[in-house]
């Protein structure tokens, strides 16, 4: 316990941790405030205004088309067929398109959960990498091992402290986030159709978000520990980005059916939103009802979940193995 207490103190006394956590809070606060002020509740007044605006736009379109037809007939005498344009239809001016933005908790909160998870995952990756990377780089790890020679226990405790605190932070912020957006939906939007099943679905999305945060923290930590420098994790991240672009281009050039399926962010998307569909628009499956339908590949959260777990286990396992076997210099 004394080691865990020391590592907790070390984690939160680092300036980098404070800077990243404050940045996270600022991003989340800006999102919440922006959502609050960019939406409003829809009532009779807003519906009437939207209908009036739609009607005005329709009338304006009718006038414009009539004037254009008249000018066309003047310029093309004896060729009325050339100016036989269809008149605007009232259905082209649906009043719902003129309604103000309103926050629908049921429809939009999953996106907000994902936003929270992605921001926290980024923070976990950076803080995790820096937490152990700077220890290696500054010689602090060696000092610590002179006090606590059980290497795996030291590295494992550091990782556990990092992930434990990020789990707690994610749960706390998740609860606050839910409260804030429920408040926004209640006061500036709608909470229609919020059944128990919807809340359960939110909970499961939140748990997948928590897993994303934990995985990001563990991978950042393990990469930096493997390279014994924070830069190793950051370099790997940049390298992965560059590799993704290269793989995507090569997959396209090679005629792969679903090049988007090779992009890591799409796997994260599938994990959070349960599935991600990619289409091969060069194919055509004709049907009498809907015409040409492209081939479709569905990336499911089960597949991406297993993949994330395997990658995480491999990287964390490698870092533990290296900690046990490599000399400390």
């Amino acid at each position: 316990m004394s080691l865990a207490r020391a590592e907790t103190r070390r984690l939160f006394r680092r300036r980098f941790t404070s800077v990243i956590l404050i940045s996270v809070l600022l991003i989340l606060a800006a999102t919440a405030v922006g959502s609050f002020f960019s939406t409003e509740k829809v009532g009779e007044t807003q519906i009437a205004a939207a209908k009036a605006e739609a009607e005005a736009n329709y009338q304006e379109a009718v006038k414009t088309v009539a004037a254009d037809k008249q000018r066309c007939l003047t310029e093309n005498p004896g060729n009325a067929a050339a100016c036989d344009w269809p008149d605007p239809s009232p259905s082209d001016y649906d009043y719902t398109w003129y309604m103000p933005e309103t926050f629908n908790l049921r429809a939009e909160y999953p996106t907000m959960i994902t936003l929270l998870a992605v921001v926290l995952a980024g923070a976990a990756f950076l803080i995790g990498a820096s937490f152990v990377g700077s220890e290696w780089n500054s010689g602090g790890m060696m000092n610590l091992l002179l006090w606590r020679p059980r290497r795996l226990q030291v590295l494992g405790t550091k990782l556990a402290v990092l992930l434990g605190w990020f789990t707690g932070l994610t749960l706390l912020l998740g609860a606050l986030w839910t409260g804030i957006f429920t408040f926004i939906a209640t006061s500036r939007g709608t909470t229609e159709k919020m059944t128990g099943g919807v809340w359960q679905s939110f909970g499961l999305t939140g748990l997948r978000g928590l897993a994303l945060v934990v995985v990001a923290g563990a991978v950042g930590f393990a990469m930096a520990s493997l390279g014994r420098h924070t830069g190793m994790a950051l370099g790997a991240l940049v390298g992965l980005g560059a590799l993704q672009i290269g793989v995507y281009i090569m997959a396209q050039l090679a005629g792969a059916k679903y090049p988007e399926a090779w992009l890591a962010p799409m796997w994260a998307y599938a994990w959070m939103f349960k599935e991600f569909e990619v289409f091969d628009y060069n194919s055509c499956n004709f049907s009498a009802d809907s015409g040409c339908e492209p081939d479709k590949f569905v990336l499911t959260w089960q597949v991406t979940g297993v993949s994330l777990a395997v990658v995480t286990v491999l990287i964390v396992g490698a870092s533990l193995w290296a900690m046990r076997r490599r000399d400390i210099t």
């Binding site: 004394s2 070390r10 602090g140």
Partner: peptide, 22 residues
């Protein structure tokens, strides 16, 4: 050569080691 995390004070550095070592 002595190596320590450069952004911590001497007092904090030692107190963290003290915590770690009980």
């Amino acid at each position: 050569s002595p190596q320590f995390f450069p952004h911590f004070t001497a007092e904090l550095t030692l107190s963290l080691l003290a915590d770690a070592g009980g």
